[in-house]
Amino acid sequence: MRPHSDPAEFEGQRVLVTAGSKGAGRATVQRFLEAGARVMTAARRRPEDLAGVEFLEADLTSADGTRALADAAMERLGRIDALVHVLGGSTGPGGGFAVLTEDHWRAELDLNLMPAVRLDRLLLPQMIDRGSGVVIHVASIQRRLPLPDSTTAYAAAKAALTTYSKALSKEVGPKGVRVNVVSPGWIYTEAADALVQRLAASSGGTPETARQAILEALGGIPLGRPARPEEVAELIVFLASGRASAIHGGEYVIDGGTIPTV
């Protein structure tokens, strides 16, 4: 069941969401649109059914791609009021630390850390000049609960993103820009299914045994299921809204109770 959305809550606001073509990014784009925002997003390919949003085909793992997105966003929208970094994922193979090559490590950092760093560097100055803005980085509970067989490099990159976010919040908070982190647990998206398939292939097992292995590595999900993309989007949009105007410099976990400590 979808929550009630105020169609005017973000009226007049310009929002940039990375990786808005599928999964949690797509759900976030849709939720901002429902709340009246003008939205821009980017991905390597535009889905045929994506409507009502400014779009740029770009590879954000490169410096040129992030520069192209920042330039296009300012040209088309005029300013950015909320910058939401959803881009991320795990592409490394299963098999633990020994199978992770230099290229695997670089790919995980280029996907999960550097796009946020680069876009912030390009777009925060216009927020600071106005004295207002919101930045939300989507990290992962794996920064605290890494899966050593399959996501060591991903977890390390998300840990770096979280630490960077905290430092950024201390710097730009006094200048009127709020920064927060959303750390999901397991969201059952296309990327999550791809991880399951990759683990099954590397272990010689089935997708079901791979899913069970992930659940066991996480220690289970007390809620009994992964989060839905729409649920993650709801948290992101709340943190970007005026309802969260005093929330700054924090990390907000949405994991169905997976992390076993307070």
Results as ranks from 00 to 15, higher is better:
residue 2 R to D: 11
residue 2 R to E: 13
residue 4 H to T: 12
residue 7 P to I: 03
residue 7 P to C: 03
residue 9 E to L: 13
residue 11 E to W: 10
residue 17 V to L: 06
residue 19 A to G: 15
residue 20 G to Q: 10
residue 21 S to F: 06
residue 21 S to T: 15
residue 23 G to A: 09
residue 23 G to N: 08
residue 27 A to I: 05
residue 31 R to F: 05
residue 34 E to P: 01
residue 35 A to L: 11
residue 35 A to W: 01
residue 39 V to T: 04
residue 39 V to A: 04
residue 40 M to T: 00
residue 41 T to I: 01
residue 44 R to Q: 10
residue 46 R to L: 06
residue 46 R to T: 02
residue 48 E to G: 10
residue 48 E to N: 10
residue 50 L to C: 02
residue 50 L to K: 04
residue 56 L to T: 00
residue 58 A to G: 05
residue 63 A to S: 12
residue 64 D to R: 11
residue 65 G to M: 03
residue 66 T to R: 08
residue 70 A to R: 03
residue 72 A to M: 08
residue 73 A to H: 07
residue 74 M to H: 09
residue 81 D to N: 12
residue 83 L to K: 08
residue 89 G to Q: 10
residue 89 G to F: 07
residue 89 G to L: 07
residue 91 T to P: 00
residue 94 G to P: 11
residue 96 G to A: 10
residue 98 A to Y: 10
residue 100 L to D: 14
residue 100 L to F: 13
residue 101 T to N: 07
residue 101 T to H: 00
residue 104 H to G: 01
residue 106 R to M: 10
residue 108 E to A: 12
residue 108 E to D: 14
residue 110 D to V: 00
residue 110 D to P: 01
residue 111 L to Y: 05
residue 114 M to R: 13
residue 115 P to E: 08
residue 116 A to R: 06
residue 121 R to C: 01
residue 124 L to H: 02
residue 125 P to A: 10
residue 127 M to P: 08
residue 131 G to R: 01
residue 131 G to W: 06
residue 132 S to G: 04
residue 133 G to W: 11
residue 136 I to L: 15
residue 139 A to H: 06
residue 142 Q to R: 13
residue 143 R to E: 15
residue 146 P to Y: 09
residue 147 L to K: 07
residue 150 S to E: 09
residue 151 T to V: 08
residue 152 T to H: 03
residue 152 T to A: 09
residue 153 A to P: 07
residue 153 A to T: 13
residue 154 Y to D: 03
residue 154 Y to S: 03
residue 155 A to W: 14
residue 156 A to W: 05
residue 157 A to F: 11
residue 159 A to E: 06
residue 159 A to L: 13
residue 160 A to L: 04
residue 165 S to D: 09
residue 172 V to T: 07
residue 177 V to T: 09
residue 178 R to G: 05
residue 183 S to E: 15
residue 184 P to E: 04
residue 186 W to L: 14
residue 189 T to F: 12
residue 192 A to R: 02
residue 195 L to H: 02
residue 196 V to F: 05
residue 196 V to I: 15
residue 196 V to L: 08
residue 196 V to M: 05
residue 196 V to Q: 04
residue 198 R to A: 14
residue 198 R to N: 08
residue 202 S to G: 10
residue 202 S to V: 03
residue 202 S to F: 11
residue 203 S to W: 14
residue 210 A to K: 11
residue 213 A to P: 00
residue 214 I to L: 15
residue 218 L to A: 06
residue 219 G to C: 08
residue 222 P to G: 11
residue 226 P to I: 00
residue 227 A to K: 00
residue 230 E to F: 09
residue 232 V to H: 07
residue 232 V to G: 06
residue 233 A to M: 10
residue 235 L to K: 02
residue 242 G to I: 04
residue 242 G to N: 13
residue 243 R to C: 00
residue 243 R to V: 01
residue 247 I to D: 00
residue 249 G to N: 01
residue 249 G to K: 03
residue 256 G to Y: 12
residue 259 I to H: 03
residue 260 P to A: 12
